[in-house]
Design a protein around this nucleic acid. Sequence first.
DNA 1: TATTGTTATACTCTATAACTATA
DNA 2: TATAGTTATAGAGTATAACAATA
Lengths: 136, 136
Amino acid sequence: MTDLLAQLPGYALRRAANTVMGELGDILAEHGFRITEAAVLLLVRDRADLTSSQIGRTLDIQRANMVPLLNRLESAGWVRREPLDGKSMAIVPTAAGDAKIAQLGTLIEQFETELLDRIPAEHRDHLLPALNAIWR
Amino acid sequence: MTDLLAQLPGYALRRAANTVMGELGDILAEHGFRITEAAVLLLVRDRADLTSSQIGRTLDIQRANMVPLLNRLESAGWVRREPLDGKSMAIVPTAAGDAKIAQLGTLIEQFETELLDRIPAEHRDHLLPALNAIWR
DNA sequence: TATTGTTATACTCTATAACTATA
DNA sequence: TATAGTTATAGAGTATAACAATA
Protein backbone atom coordinates (compact mmCIF):
# COMPACT_ATOMS: atom_id res chain seq x y z
CA MET A 1 0.00 0.00 0.00
CA THR A 2 2.87 2.28 0.81
CA ASP A 3 4.77 0.79 -2.11
CA LEU A 4 3.22 3.30 -4.45
CA LEU A 5 4.59 6.29 -2.58
CA ALA A 6 7.92 4.62 -1.89
CA GLN A 7 8.57 4.66 -5.63
CA LEU A 8 8.71 8.44 -5.49
CA PRO A 9 12.23 9.72 -4.79
CA GLY A 10 10.83 12.81 -3.11
CA TYR A 11 8.70 10.79 -0.75
CA ALA A 12 11.53 8.39 0.04
CA LEU A 13 13.82 11.35 0.65
CA ARG A 14 11.36 12.81 3.12
CA ARG A 15 10.79 9.57 4.96
CA ALA A 16 14.50 8.73 5.11
CA ALA A 17 15.37 12.19 6.41
CA ASN A 18 12.61 12.08 9.02
CA THR A 19 13.70 8.67 10.20
CA VAL A 20 17.37 9.54 10.40
CA MET A 21 16.81 12.91 12.03
CA GLY A 22 14.49 11.35 14.56
CA GLU A 23 17.16 8.86 15.54
CA LEU A 24 19.90 11.47 15.58
CA GLY A 25 17.74 13.80 17.62
CA ASP A 26 17.25 11.13 20.27
CA ILE A 27 20.96 10.42 20.46
CA LEU A 28 21.94 14.07 20.65
CA ALA A 29 19.26 14.82 23.23
CA GLU A 30 20.92 12.35 25.59
CA HIS A 31 23.97 14.58 25.45
CA GLY A 32 22.20 17.86 25.80
CA PHE A 33 21.99 19.27 22.30
CA ARG A 34 19.64 19.55 19.42
CA ILE A 35 20.43 18.86 15.80
CA THR A 36 20.76 22.48 14.73
CA GLU A 37 22.92 23.21 17.75
CA ALA A 38 25.17 20.28 16.86
CA ALA A 39 25.58 21.65 13.34
CA VAL A 40 26.61 25.03 14.75
CA LEU A 41 29.07 23.44 17.14
CA LEU A 42 30.68 21.36 14.40
CA LEU A 43 30.96 24.48 12.30
CA VAL A 44 32.76 26.54 14.93
CA ARG A 45 35.08 23.71 15.88
CA ASP A 46 38.67 24.98 15.76
CA ARG A 47 37.48 28.40 14.66
CA ALA A 48 37.10 31.68 16.47
CA ASP A 49 36.17 34.01 13.63
CA LEU A 50 32.66 33.02 12.56
CA THR A 51 29.85 35.44 13.23
CA SER A 52 26.27 34.57 13.97
CA SER A 53 25.20 35.80 10.54
CA GLN A 54 27.84 33.79 8.75
CA ILE A 55 26.85 30.63 10.59
CA GLY A 56 23.24 31.27 9.77
CA ARG A 57 23.94 31.74 6.07
CA THR A 58 26.02 28.58 5.95
CA LEU A 59 23.47 26.40 7.71
CA ASP A 60 20.40 28.13 6.30
CA ILE A 61 19.19 29.33 9.65
CA GLN A 62 17.51 32.72 9.77
CA ARG A 63 19.43 35.44 11.57
CA ALA A 64 16.55 35.85 13.99
CA ASN A 65 16.50 32.16 14.83
CA MET A 66 20.21 32.13 15.59
CA VAL A 67 19.62 34.25 18.68
CA PRO A 68 17.80 31.77 20.92
CA LEU A 69 19.97 28.97 19.53
CA LEU A 70 23.16 30.76 20.54
CA ASN A 71 21.62 31.79 23.83
CA ARG A 72 21.21 28.12 24.66
CA LEU A 73 24.77 27.26 23.64
CA GLU A 74 26.05 30.19 25.65
CA SER A 75 23.95 29.28 28.69
CA ALA A 76 25.34 25.76 28.49
CA GLY A 77 28.81 27.30 28.60
CA TRP A 78 29.91 25.88 25.26
CA VAL A 79 30.39 29.09 23.28
CA ARG A 80 30.73 32.76 24.05
CA ARG A 81 29.92 35.84 22.02
CA GLU A 82 33.02 37.93 21.42
CA PRO A 83 32.76 41.35 19.75
CA LEU A 84 34.70 41.53 16.49
CA ASP A 85 33.86 45.18 16.03
CA GLY A 86 31.04 47.35 17.25
CA LYS A 87 28.51 45.36 15.24
CA SER A 88 29.55 41.75 14.67
CA MET A 89 29.98 39.02 17.24
CA ALA A 90 32.33 36.08 16.83
CA ILE A 91 30.95 32.81 18.17
CA VAL A 92 33.86 31.08 19.82
CA PRO A 93 33.88 27.73 21.63
CA THR A 94 34.89 27.79 25.27
CA ALA A 95 37.21 25.19 26.79
CA ALA A 96 34.16 23.27 27.92
CA GLY A 97 32.78 23.71 24.42
CA ASP A 98 35.91 22.21 22.86
CA ALA A 99 35.50 19.12 25.02
CA LYS A 100 31.81 18.89 24.19
CA ILE A 101 32.48 19.31 20.49
CA ALA A 102 35.07 16.55 20.58
CA GLN A 103 32.50 14.29 22.19
CA LEU A 104 29.97 15.36 19.59
CA GLY A 105 32.42 14.58 16.80
CA THR A 106 32.74 11.01 18.05
CA LEU A 107 28.98 10.60 18.27
CA ILE A 108 28.44 11.92 14.77
CA GLU A 109 31.21 9.81 13.28
CA GLN A 110 29.68 6.67 14.75
CA PHE A 111 26.21 7.68 13.69
CA GLU A 112 27.23 8.36 10.10
CA THR A 113 29.05 5.04 9.88
CA GLU A 114 26.00 3.16 11.10
CA LEU A 115 23.85 5.09 8.67
CA LEU A 116 25.98 4.05 5.71
CA ASP A 117 26.04 0.48 6.97
CA ARG A 118 22.31 0.22 6.39
CA ILE A 119 22.72 0.83 2.70
CA PRO A 120 23.50 -2.10 0.38
CA ALA A 121 27.14 -1.92 -0.69
CA GLU A 122 26.37 -1.38 -4.35
CA HIS A 123 24.41 1.81 -3.57
CA ARG A 124 26.39 3.12 -0.64
CA ASP A 125 28.94 5.33 -2.34
CA HIS A 126 26.32 6.96 -4.53
CA LEU A 127 24.24 8.44 -1.73
CA LEU A 128 26.39 11.41 -0.77
CA PRO A 129 27.06 12.67 -4.31
CA ALA A 130 23.42 12.18 -5.26
CA LEU A 131 22.20 14.12 -2.22
CA ASN A 132 24.72 16.90 -2.65
CA ALA A 133 23.76 17.25 -6.29
CA ILE A 134 20.23 17.95 -5.14
CA TRP A 135 20.81 20.83 -2.80
CA ARG A 136 24.29 22.33 -3.27
CA MET B 1 33.42 26.05 5.10
CA THR B 2 30.28 24.07 4.59
CA ASP B 3 32.34 21.38 2.86
CA LEU B 4 33.07 19.75 6.15
CA LEU B 5 29.43 19.15 6.98
CA ALA B 6 28.54 18.24 3.41
CA GLN B 7 30.75 15.18 3.78
CA LEU B 8 28.32 13.82 6.35
CA PRO B 9 25.57 11.72 4.73
CA GLY B 10 23.18 12.63 7.52
CA TYR B 11 23.72 16.33 7.04
CA ALA B 12 23.44 16.03 3.26
CA LEU B 13 20.25 14.02 3.70
CA ARG B 14 18.76 16.73 5.88
CA ARG B 15 19.72 19.57 3.57
CA ALA B 16 18.54 17.74 0.45
CA ALA B 17 15.21 16.88 2.04
CA ASN B 18 14.69 20.43 3.30
CA THR B 19 15.49 21.86 -0.11
CA VAL B 20 13.26 19.46 -1.99
CA MET B 21 10.37 19.73 0.44
CA GLY B 22 10.61 23.50 0.36
CA GLU B 23 10.31 23.49 -3.40
CA LEU B 24 7.54 20.92 -3.40
CA GLY B 25 5.68 22.80 -0.70
CA ASP B 26 5.73 25.96 -2.81
CA ILE B 27 4.43 24.12 -5.86
CA LEU B 28 1.68 22.34 -3.96
CA ALA B 29 0.67 25.52 -2.15
CA GLU B 30 -0.16 27.10 -5.51
CA HIS B 31 -2.71 24.34 -5.95
CA GLY B 32 -4.15 24.48 -2.49
CA PHE B 33 -2.58 21.60 -0.63
CA ARG B 34 0.21 20.84 1.76
CA ILE B 35 2.71 18.06 1.47
CA THR B 36 1.10 15.77 4.02
CA GLU B 37 -2.29 16.36 2.45
CA ALA B 38 -0.90 15.46 -0.95
CA ALA B 39 0.46 12.19 0.46
CA VAL B 40 -2.97 11.34 1.86
CA LEU B 41 -4.67 12.15 -1.42
CA LEU B 42 -2.27 9.99 -3.42
CA LEU B 43 -2.86 7.18 -0.97
CA VAL B 44 -6.64 7.24 -1.29
CA ARG B 45 -6.56 7.55 -5.06
CA ASP B 46 -8.77 4.87 -6.56
CA ARG B 47 -9.60 3.54 -3.10
CA ALA B 48 -12.65 3.86 -0.91
CA ASP B 49 -11.77 1.54 1.94
CA LEU B 50 -8.96 3.24 3.85
CA THR B 51 -9.69 4.52 7.33
CA SER B 52 -8.11 7.51 8.99
CA SER B 53 -6.13 5.26 11.31
CA GLN B 54 -4.82 3.13 8.45
CA ILE B 55 -3.70 6.19 6.52
CA GLY B 56 -2.00 7.54 9.60
CA ARG B 57 -0.12 4.32 10.22
CA THR B 58 1.01 4.13 6.60
CA LEU B 59 2.25 7.71 6.44
CA ASP B 60 3.44 7.90 10.04
CA ILE B 61 0.98 10.57 11.02
CA GLN B 62 -0.47 10.42 14.53
CA ARG B 63 -4.16 9.55 14.73
CA ALA B 64 -4.83 12.83 16.49
CA ASN B 65 -3.10 14.83 13.77
CA MET B 66 -5.14 13.17 11.06
CA VAL B 67 -8.26 14.95 12.32
CA PRO B 68 -7.45 18.55 11.33
CA LEU B 69 -5.75 17.28 8.19
CA LEU B 70 -8.86 15.44 7.05
CA ASN B 71 -11.04 18.35 8.15
CA ARG B 72 -9.18 20.52 5.66
CA LEU B 73 -9.50 17.98 2.86
CA GLU B 74 -13.18 17.58 3.63
CA SER B 75 -13.75 21.34 3.78
CA ALA B 76 -12.08 21.65 0.40
CA GLY B 77 -14.56 19.09 -0.89
CA TRP B 78 -11.95 16.56 -1.96
CA VAL B 79 -12.78 13.70 0.39
CA ARG B 80 -15.67 12.69 2.57
CA ARG B 81 -15.84 10.59 5.71
CA GLU B 82 -18.04 7.55 5.20
CA PRO B 83 -18.90 5.24 8.12
CA LEU B 84 -17.63 1.69 7.60
CA ASP B 85 -19.20 0.50 10.83
CA GLY B 86 -20.15 2.27 14.00
CA LYS B 87 -16.54 3.11 14.76
CA SER B 88 -14.37 3.41 11.65
CA MET B 89 -14.61 5.98 8.92
CA ALA B 90 -13.54 5.37 5.32
CA ILE B 91 -11.87 8.33 3.69
CA VAL B 92 -13.15 8.41 0.14
CA PRO B 93 -12.35 10.90 -2.61
CA THR B 94 -15.26 12.89 -4.00
CA ALA B 95 -15.68 13.52 -7.70
CA ALA B 96 -13.96 16.86 -7.24
CA GLY B 97 -11.31 15.02 -5.27
CA ASP B 98 -10.70 12.58 -8.10
CA ALA B 99 -10.08 15.49 -10.46
CA LYS B 100 -7.82 17.20 -7.96
CA ILE B 101 -5.88 14.00 -7.35
CA ALA B 102 -5.37 13.50 -11.07
CA GLN B 103 -3.99 17.01 -11.27
CA LEU B 104 -1.80 16.29 -8.26
CA GLY B 105 -0.51 13.13 -9.90
CA THR B 106 0.66 15.13 -12.90
CA LEU B 107 2.37 17.69 -10.70
CA ILE B 108 4.17 15.04 -8.68
CA GLU B 109 5.25 13.09 -11.73
CA GLN B 110 6.81 16.18 -13.24
CA PHE B 111 8.39 17.15 -9.95
CA GLU B 112 9.96 13.75 -9.43
CA THR B 113 11.33 13.71 -12.95
CA GLU B 114 12.96 17.10 -12.49
CA LEU B 115 14.35 15.96 -9.16
CA LEU B 116 16.05 12.95 -10.72
CA ASP B 117 17.33 15.11 -13.57
CA ARG B 118 19.46 17.04 -11.11
CA ILE B 119 21.41 13.93 -10.18
CA PRO B 120 24.40 12.89 -12.31
CA ALA B 121 23.45 9.88 -14.39
CA GLU B 122 25.91 7.53 -12.73
CA HIS B 123 24.31 8.11 -9.33
CA ARG B 124 20.69 8.53 -10.34
CA ASP B 125 19.40 4.98 -10.12
CA HIS B 126 21.02 4.42 -6.74
CA LEU B 127 19.15 7.12 -4.88
CA LEU B 128 15.78 5.44 -4.42
CA PRO B 129 17.11 2.06 -3.23
CA ALA B 130 19.60 3.76 -0.93
CA LEU B 131 16.92 5.95 0.64
CA ASN B 132 14.45 3.12 1.00
CA ALA B 133 17.10 0.97 2.66
CA ILE B 134 17.42 3.66 5.30
CA TRP B 135 13.84 3.91 6.45
CA ARG B 136 11.77 0.95 5.26
C1' DT C 1 -9.74 -5.27 26.36
C1' DA C 2 -8.06 -3.01 22.25
C1' DT C 3 -9.12 0.27 18.78
C1' DT C 4 -11.31 4.46 16.49
C1' DG C 5 -12.15 9.09 16.15
C1' DT C 6 -11.83 13.09 18.60
C1' DT C 7 -10.47 17.24 21.66
C1' DA C 8 -7.18 19.85 23.88
C1' DT C 9 -2.66 21.09 24.51
C1' DA C 10 2.24 21.88 24.20
C1' DC C 11 6.63 21.99 22.07
C1' DT C 12 9.91 22.45 18.30
C1' DC C 13 11.19 24.47 14.11
C1' DT C 14 10.81 27.95 11.02
C1' DA C 15 9.42 32.50 8.75
C1' DT C 16 8.48 37.55 8.84
C1' DA C 17 8.46 42.18 10.23
C1' DA C 18 10.41 45.72 12.66
C1' DC C 19 13.81 48.09 15.54
C1' DT C 20 18.56 49.88 16.95
C1' DA C 21 23.23 50.44 16.09
C1' DT C 22 27.16 50.09 13.30
C1' DA C 23 29.89 49.22 8.82
C1' DT D 1 22.75 52.41 2.32
C1' DA D 2 23.49 47.78 3.64
C1' DT D 3 24.38 44.73 7.36
C1' DA D 4 24.44 42.71 12.35
C1' DG D 5 22.11 41.47 16.24
C1' DT D 6 17.93 41.48 18.44
C1' DT D 7 12.80 41.23 19.78
C1' DA D 8 8.31 39.75 19.10
C1' DT D 9 5.19 36.98 16.85
C1' DA D 10 2.87 33.65 13.99
C1' DG D 11 2.45 29.49 11.56
C1' DA D 12 3.36 24.86 10.51
C1' DG D 13 4.41 20.10 12.06
C1' DT D 14 4.40 17.00 15.51
C1' DA D 15 3.74 14.54 20.16
C1' DT D 16 1.00 13.27 24.35
C1' DA D 17 -2.81 12.56 27.28
C1' DA D 18 -7.39 11.82 27.85
C1' DC D 19 -12.23 10.80 26.61
C1' DA D 20 -16.50 8.38 24.70
C1' DA D 21 -18.12 4.94 21.70
C1' DT D 22 -17.54 0.70 19.41
C1' DA D 23 -15.07 -3.71 17.83
